[in-house]
Structures are given as C-alpha cells and as structure tokens.
Design a binder for these strands. Structure first.
Lengths: 207, 207
DNA sequence: TTAAAAATAGGGGGAAACCCCGATACTTCT
DNA sequence: AGAAGTATCGGGGTTTCCCCCTATTTTTAA
C-alpha cells in the first residue's frame, strides 16, 4: 500500500508518518508540501491513498479536485483539514473526496480512514466530523459552491480591502458591474455585508 | 528537562513529541489541547519550556500571556503558530514570549528553540520567521496593540456581521458611540474599511 | 488629586455600499 | 435552436458607512 500526504506543516507530516508506520510498518509513505510537489509525486509513484490538506489551495479547490479525479480516477482522496466549516465538507464530498478528517482528530482516525477507503465500499468521516456534522444540521447548509473566475477575482480584491470603485478601475469595468458581482458573491455566500463575506471567505480558505 | 505542548491538533502534538524524544529521549513531555488543560498541567507539574499554539485563544492572547508571565515567571514560552502575521509576532514578543516558530518549520527548529531558550540568554526565532520577518520590513509595523474591552466587544460583533445600528441595539448605546469605537478600531488596525478590518482581525486571532 | 484614557453622544455631510429593476452580448451545453 | 450561465452596464433609490468636529461623564492611573 502506498500512501501520500500533502501538507505544508512539517509537524503534521511527521505526526502523520509516525502514526501510519506504527500500524503499517511496511507501507510506503510519500510526502509533499504543496500542489506542485503532489503532481510531481503522482507522476513518479503509484499512490493508492492521498491525504490532502485542502487549505493549500486558496483559490480553487474545485478545479483541483476535478484535476485529481480525472487524472487519477483510482486514487482515494482523504481531505485532512483544520477547518470545521460544514458546507465546505459537503462540497468536497460532492467533488469526489473519499474521506474527511480533522487535524484535531486522534491518530487512530487515520488508520480507520485508510481501512475504510481501502475496502472500497464507503466514504469515511472521522468522529470529529460526525459530531459537528450532526450538531449543526447540515441538511439546510448553504453551499458556498462554485465561484465564477470573475467572482473569484473580485472576491480577492475585496479581501484586499479595495472599494467597488477601486476594483472597477483595476479591472477596467464599471462600478455597476462590480456591484453585480459583489451582490452575487453575497448570495452565494449567503451573507448580507462585507464583514460576513470576508469572514466566511477566509474561513473557507479563499485567502 | 520538562516540556509541555499545547495544541488542539493531535497530529501536531504527536509530531512534536516524536521530534523531541528523538533528540532528548529522557525529557518528560506533557501535552494539553487547550487553555484549561494547560493550567491544570502547570499546577501539577514543574514545566520548564512551554510550546504554545497561540490560535487557541480567540479573544485575548494578551491577558493570557500576562497570566502566564505573572503566574509562572520562570516558564519559557515558545509560540508555535501557523500564522505568519508579523505584527502579531512582534506583539507576542513584547508580551513576553521567548520564542516563535511556525508549524511549517522543520522539526530541527524545535530542538534549536529548546537549546536557545535553555541557555537563558536570547530569544528564539525560527528560520521561517526570520525570512518573513526581513522580507517585509517589520520595523514600521503597525502594532494592532491594545484593544479596550469595549472595542473588543464591538469588534466581535462586527466580525459577526452586525451593522452599526444592530451593535448599538445589542449594547444599548447610540449608533454614534458605536461609530466612534469603530473608527478607533480602524485607526488601531490601520485599515480604512470593514473588509480589511475583518481580515486583519481574523489573521491576528481575534476570531 | 490631577491628568489621561475610555465610554458616552451629538451635528453635519459626503462617499460608498446595498437593493430594486431591466437590458445586451457572448459562450456553453443540451 | 434554445436554454442556461456569465459578464457587461445602466437608472434610481435607500441605507449604511465613514469622517470631520465638539463635548460630557466615568474610570483608571500617575
């Protein structure tokens, strides 16, 4: 069994490798710290299970997952995150994640995750996830879902503290157009002002 | 030598313990996952060096550091964080931190940190910090500094997406007063709109 | 006890945000 | 060919923000 972990926190990687080797001394574990490193790795090695820190990709987790799914359909992807944001979790599952666990989960959950996805039958969610998942009723969760390229562009400028006028000047479009995109961002994020938008965007990894 | 680590991410804790035991097999390492656990621990054990994930304390790292410093003046405190926010680092040093390292630093930095603060002479900053530190010229850094209790209250309501009017109604004060506090927050955070305020506040751990 | 800081509140005004609406053009997918 | 989605722009409006001031009371610290 070949396992890979991608995380930019060295400590996380070390803790992970230790935990897996303890249970599976014969497993081969590859590590990478970012997106680029991951693809280099995937080209060289046949990876069975990938543990992925989703916060690596600021802008577009969706395209990233798609790329992984299409390029490596057999790959099992387990998201490992410090985010407890539920809509994100739901979205990632829709995008083809096979499992999800928190960095705060005990390391036994890693082993469980490996076993669950190896058996090919079901998706894995850690206990930490499940408790949060059912605490807030995720059923009526608002999907921050998909942002268009232009929306992402405008969101990033909002996050930089730019005003509508400044954004318009930057992108050479009218303030009205910026307002429209802004409104659409509000709708997609289900918020009613910039403060909430910025908060939600940051917590969902758009920074 | 007795070492403690406080972090709510189990993987980080495991990675840390492994790294330290590798170099100091005889060291005693205690762990806690939150603030409460830490104080329970400090009452029972004589800790020499504390590695602390500062993101644990949403509201008030300042009071927290003060409490530690006054209650345990001999304790060496090394902040371990995933935040790369420079003003925060500076502030924490001012508040009596003895060292600072990133979660993305290699584990050799942990050992270096232990050695540096043990020698009692100097503060420790990891290589990761130093490179960032000098990349942006921190000299003219704006200290988000001290927030009054009322300002913290208002900040937290802004972070919840409340409008000036709503905040006034919540705290039973006039909108004008809220506006004043809001202005003062802008000045202290050195920003010019809510978007930047929220972003900076979250990055500096006020969430 | 005096000075400084914090919290309160107001007047007044301009700028930006926010919310309706409708409209056109271009791509993409079915 | 038609529907859906994206991106563009406008009119016209209300609300909120943001900034300039002054000023009083209370709390805190020197």
């Amino acid at each position: 069994m070949t396992i890979a972990i991608v995380d930019d926190h060295q400590l996380i990687v070390d803790g992970f490798v230790g935990a897996v080797l303890q249970t599976y001394p014969d497993s081969r574990i590859h590590t990478a710290s970012d997106e680029r490193g991951l693809f280099t790795l995937l080209k060289k090695e046949a990876i069975d299970i990938l543990f992925l820190d989703i916060r690596l990709h600021r802008s577009d987790a969706r395209d990233f997952m798609k790329k992984l799914r299409t390029g490596y359909p057999e790959l099992k992807i387990i998201i490992i995150s410090s985010l407890s944001d539920l809509p994100t979790i739901e979205t990632l599952f829709k995008q083809g994640a096979d499992g999800y666990l928190f960095k705060s989960d005990p390391k036994t959950e890693i082993i469980k995750a490996i076993q669950t996805v190896s058996e090919e039958k079901e998706k894995f969610t850690s206990k930490g996830i499940e408790s949060k998942y059912f605490a807030h009723n995720i059923v009526k969760s608002h999907h921050p879902t998909y942002l268009t390229p232009r929306e992402k562009e405008i969101l990033s400028l909002i996050l930089k503290g730019k005003t509508t006028k400044e954004i318009g000047d930057t992108l050479f479009i009218s303030e009205k157009t910026v307002e429209n995109h802004r409104t659409n961002l509000f709708i997609k994020f289900d918020v009613k002002n910039v403060a909430s938008l910025v908060k939600k965007a940051i917590l969902e990894g758009h920074l």
